[in-house]
Amino acid sequence: MSGDLRKQLEAHAGLALIYEEAWAEIERAETTAGLEEARVKHLGRKSQLSSLLRSIPELPAAERPVVGKFGNQVRTVLEAALAERKKVLEAAELERRLSRESVDITLPGQPFPRGHLHLITQTLWQIEDFFSGLGYRIAEGPEVETDYYNFTALNTPEGHPARSLHDTFFVEGKPEVLLRTHTSPVQIRVMEKEDPPVYVIIPGRVYRRDSDATHTPMFHQVEGLAVDEHITMGDLKGTLEAFAKSMFGAEREIRLRPHYFPFTEPSVEVDVSCMICSGAGCRSCKYSGWLEILGAGMVDPNVFGFVGYEPDEVQGFAFGMGVERIAMLRHGMTDLRMFYDNDLRFIKQF
């Protein structure tokens, strides 16, 4: 407060009294509600100060300017003090409220449960995404299939010894109908319908009559087929190498081992360098440093004959992989049967 104001206040005892009292009450207020009471009392329409200011016209002419000037100064100062005090009190009150609202942050949050896609689906999608990125389409075909598509057209005629390697489920009453033992019959169906070039993968369920620790009567395969003018074995190798790196890590390598399948020539089995021991040799890879992941080869010219392609004009490769095996290797699983027990404790892990 300026000395000038104080002098003037002393000169007008009424104003001084009003000022002192109001100031003290503003300073004393401990809550915003108490402060509001003080405001109404000292600055409200019915306050002494307001009455005084209203009564100025009735004052002697000499006093009027002085009271008017200093009365309003008092009002301004009090209002400022009030605002200042209000800020302080509000801050304190907010502080108290927030402190009251404190919770036990160690309690768990509100659940928003999510479900889980089966590990086979997740693996399938990953395989599909890899190959669709390379320009492959995804084809499908029947699971209840004829002998012709499952064997004969795949260069495995009746009486072929390779047939006995597949333990086949047959359909009652229809000796030529069976549950497909691999996804390969869809190769034939695709090529029958479409002219080359053909780049497809074929995911799906397949069935073999075998059930033990390492076999389930139903499992999943992904078949791949690329038929074009100049496809080479090198293209097969490069494609599968890129696939292996995508699924198992950039540092993986593959190797091709010659093998035999009736519908490819040459045929190979494909190993990936062991992701557990990085090729040093461990129990999982039987100390060889390599894990078999799929079978493949160059499409046999006889197969092209079955679908009406000209074997001297096109070449192609095909491959087939077990999805369960890929998933087990990726996730370190040891028991195949868990995929089909459908125990939610298993499914919800992934």
């Binding site: 669709s132 990125g133 320009g135 780049y199």
Partner: peptide, 10 residues
């Protein structure tokens, strides 16, 4: 290698 000159869409 990878197949060259692919003329398809995946």
């Amino acid at each position: 290698t990878l197949p060259s000159g692919m003329r398809v869409l995946g």
